[in-house]
């Protein structure tokens, strides 16, 4: 034992190193699954696009409507196939799909992140109270949760948007209302099993208050399934949002760059299925953007579940 081993900063460094090593081990197991790794890479790519895409690209996807011709081509209203100038083509009303898809990444991911994280936060809070305290409080929380779970989520969101207003804020709120009950359930289940473990009892025996026990021992040990659920729900939020736009109850007008909205532009302005099949890129490309992200998120979630479950670690 050397003298400088005592200094506070080196102790912090040692603690951090240990924690990093345990993270590195988890990461190693994660990369053992190639599919999950691919999922992670694609998701990271989307995140990069969401952060830097709008900065690099500039302009509006719908600025095309202002010109009748662009680069010598007549573009207004008729969808143009993918070309040098419009890598993903344009959709009806001269909407630039590439520009739209890239900008949509930011809005979609941001909304999904806000919804899922607030849902998880609310769920963890209520779930740990319901699980640890139990009794009447727990019963009331769980019954309220059940009520929310029993209403079809899409209907609830539509009702919200129609009753209040069709703005971004209301949509986020509506989605949070849909999502918190799932997390409450998961966290409660976890807490119920964790609170029976001996280290929790040891902490109680040491005189720790309920709040301290929950924050120090119970939440850190029951939060891992939440990570998995978050990564899976990310995709679900985007899908739900796309569905809302597709049903025509999205927020703020036609031109919002949102994947679901870009699809709905094609479906609203075209004259039926033959037109859509003819201008296939108007639907397929934004749909692919959603599909690839959701599938990758699911792969990532599966990978996460495998590494956080020690039984599956081999």
């Amino acid at each position: 034992m050397t003298a400088n081993a005592n200094s506070a900063s080196s102790n912090l460094a040692r603690a951090l190193r240990t924690k990093f090593q345990s993270f590195a081990k988890t990461f190693y197991f994660y990369t053992r699954s190639p599919i999950a790794t691919i999922g992670l890479i694609i998701v990271l790519f989307y995140v990069l696009v969401a952060i830097f895409g709008p900065i690099v690209l500039g302009g509006n996807p719908w600025r095309m409507t202002q010109y009748l011709s662009y680069h010598g081509q007549y573009i207004y209203n008729i969808p143009q196939p993918p070309s040098r100038y419009f890598p993903f083509g344009t959709t009806f009303e001269g909407y630039d799909i590439f520009n739209g898809v890239v900008k949509a990444a930011r809005i979609d991911l941001m909304v999904a992140a806000i919804v899922v994280l607030s849902g998880a936060l609310i769920g963890t809070f209520l779930g740990s109270i319901a699980g640890y305290k139990g009794g009447l409080t727990g019963e009331v929380i769980m019954r309220v949760t059940d009520i929310f779970l029993s209403i079809p989520s899409l209907v609830l969101a539509i009702a919200f948007l129609v009753i209040f207003s069709r703005t971004l804020n209301v949509m986020v709120l509506a989605l949070i209302v849909i999502w918190w009950p799932t997390y409450t359930r998961i966290v409660r289940g976890q807490v119920l099993s964790v609170r029976e473990l001996k280290y929790v009892e040891a902490s109680v025996a040491a005189g720790s208050s309920s709040i301290r026990t929950v924050l120090k021992h119970i939440i850190p040990n029951s939060i891992y399934p939440i990570f998995v659920q978050v990564s899976l729900d990310f995709g679900n939020v985007i899908l739900t949002m796309a569905a809302l736009f597709f049903l025509g109850v999205g927020f703020a007008g036609y031109w919002t760059p949102e994947w679901g909205n870009i699809i709905s532009i094609a479906t609203t302005f075209s004259s039926g299925i033959p037109a859509i099949t003819h201008y296939w890129w108007t639907v397929v490309i934004p749909a692919l953007a959603i599909l690839i992200l959701v599938v990758s998120l699911n792969l990532m979630g599966d990978g996460l579940r495998d590494v956080t479950d020690p039984r599956l670690r081999r």
């Binding site: 001996k198 005189g207 850190p220």
Partner: peptide, 26 residues
């Protein structure tokens, strides 16, 4: 109290120093 099962009686997400420090901090 000291429990029987040495596996579940220590919080798996805490460092040993934090585990031992807990009763002292309280």
């Amino acid at each position: 109290i000291v429990f029987q099962d040495p596996v579940s009686s220590l919080d798996p997400r805490m460092l040993i120093k934090d585990i031992i420090a807990e009763p002292i901090l309280i």
